[in-house]
Design a protein around this nucleic acid. Structure first.
Lengths: 333, 333
DNA sequence: GTGAAAGCGCTAACAA
DNA sequence: TTGTTAGCGCTTTCAC
């Protein structure tokens, strides 16, 4: 990598002249600027990012801590973050917490020592279960802003971007009630995290308000055989509708129902959280609750960068709610 | 963030004493070391990463350029890279090229100016189509090693990690021939990239070697309605087996076949590239070609870090082939 | 209009 | 055993 020093030497001027010339300072003569820029172009000079960061005490880099990159929703949020960050001149350093509190702490610690200007994260399952929030507070006290999305820690004062999980399942369930479904079940593979619980509550509320049936909830653990669990459930309970809290449950529910001879949506309706490409994985296509993951990511990046650059003068922390949409496909009436 | 300077001041010693003490230099007295470390702990001192990078001219950071994070395979490779990199003390900066040559160039350019010690990447579709490789060569000449995985540019001299795509579909097709299938079709949604072509060739070779049937290839474009295309194809051609080059095609093929009344695997066998969780999205479960994405990622990280740290003394570039495995599930006999 | 010098936080060769 | 100094690449204030 060519440096200012080398350019200066070759041009027989001082380092500061070169620096100023490249930054179009009006202290420098036109002719000099031209000469400097020419040589810089020739050598394809780029200012060293580390030197800039050190000097200006900002890195133009965002730390992103994601619990699980194999989750389509989270991957999509990451995509949204990356796009918005790039647009605003920021890079992202990605860490995958793998749902582990320890890794989450470590990432915060490691990147916190000068590598990034702030963090965007979704809380690891282990941290949520143990309600651990000290590490977040420490980071914030250190002067590094955090934006949390989806799985947030309510007791931490920071900007947040969340989904209207409760309303989403509440409305989805209402929808099924309007179809006159008599036995609506709720399937969930994510019952240990906050959003999973919110979704269950939305379902429960709709069922109880209606008052004509009892909630039936199938909780599937990560280690369970997903297909077998659902098959067994279908055989034991006669149900005519499913609200699925995660995308796999919805997809498997449809395929299994079809396999057991049920007609969709005549005999059974299914609504699930899923992305567009996932909803393609069933026939008929799954009626889905879309979370607009990319928008969530873009919003999170936006909030963080504004905070970093002090664009929003106000000190209050914001919580943005990105509303889900119900996309009606053919797995409901 | 607390600095050496501040610690030194508080302890009434010089900056270099503090630095040496923290690095356990034997130049420093035990008592001093203890005092320094105590205060450093108290203030939770961490050396500033930017300063270290600038000083030592290495960043302990890897640039990863991924064409599409929503692709499960690529996401999984990223996971593997991140895990291996973290294990060896490296961070990763992730850029998403979105299959665009321009973005790929830009990322190389931007991160190349001091932000990373090397790159791991899978070539963007646009770059492959136009056979653009100058930007890779430029980066390498700049002294930054590159490791390519999956979609590689053969004319660039660098370490590579690839999958035995040709053999994978060749063997899968042979497998179907052994089942005595008479009309084996090939479905692909990725025919414009190198691996897609390799997979088609493997299929073709097996069919032609057998000599008892003609290849039947269905190429699906990104903008096509995936389900409709496959449905129409099933209606027009009577086929009894499918080899799918991408995971969506395999999954949709099974669900659509079932929907059209075919019995799987009695009437039709399906084999596809997919991850474990994807193969759960069909009933019966999809017989899959596993690519071992995490291992690919780990290998790529390993190769790159060795190159960066000059562990492998040899100058020859290595190409590692990670063999696929055929996981027999119930969508084949 | 140009250059010298200080300083961002750190390490290390050299001096004391 | 500890401190002084130079330097990594850059910007910026202040002299000339």
């Amino acid at each position: 990598m060519v440096t200012l020093k080398q350019l200066a030497k070759e041009l027989n001027v001082s380092i500061s002249t070169v620096s100023k010339a490249l930054n179009n300072s009006d202290e420098i003569g036109e002719e000099t600027i031209r000469r400097v820029k020419e040589l810089a172009d020739l050598y394809n000079y780029r200012p060293n990012k580390m030197a800039l960061s050190l000097k200006q005490n900002k890195t133009k880099t965002i730390g992103v801590i994601i619990p699980n990159i194999l989750n389509r929703f989270l991957a999509k949020v990451l995509f949204g973050i990356e796009r918005e960050a790039t647009k605003r001149g920021y890079n992202i350093i990605t860490c995958i917490s793998n749902e582990s509190l320890e890794k989450e702490k470590e990432s915060l610690q490691l990147l916190g020592s000068g590598s990034v200007d702030g963090f965007i994260l979704s809380v690891a399952q282990e941290s949520q279960v143990n309600n651990e929030i000290e590490h977040f507070k420490r980071t914030i006290n250190q002067g590094l802003p955090i934006v949390m999305f989806d799985r947030v820690a309510h007791d931490v004062m920071c900007d947040k971007v969340i989904v209207d999980d409760f309303d989403a399942t509440y409305n989805a369930t209402k929808n099924l009630l309007r179809e006159n479904r008599k036995n609506i079940a709720f399937f969930s593979n994510i019952n240990d995290i906050s959003v999973g619980k919110l979704r269950e509550r939305g379902y429960n509320k709709a069922i109880l308000e209606d008052g004509k049936q009892d909630p039936i909830v199938l909780k599937i653990k990560k280690k369970d055989d997903h297909q077998k669990k659902i098959k067994a459930f279908f055989k034991k309970n006669k149900i005519d509708a499913v609200v699925a809290a995660d995308s796999s449950s919805g997809i498997i529910a449809i395929n299994m129902a079809a396999n057991l001879g049920m007609k969709i949506p005549k005999d059974i309706s299914v609504i699930g959280f899923a992305s567009k490409s996932d909803s393609n994985h069933t026939f008929p296509k799954l009626t889905t609750i879309r979370q607009h993951a990319k928008i969530i990511g873009a919003n999170a990046a936006d909030l963080l960068i504004n905070r970093i650059e002090n664009i929003s003068s106000d000190q209050d922390m914001k919580t943005k709610i990105v509303k889900t949409s119900l996309i009606k496909n053919k797995s409901t009436l």
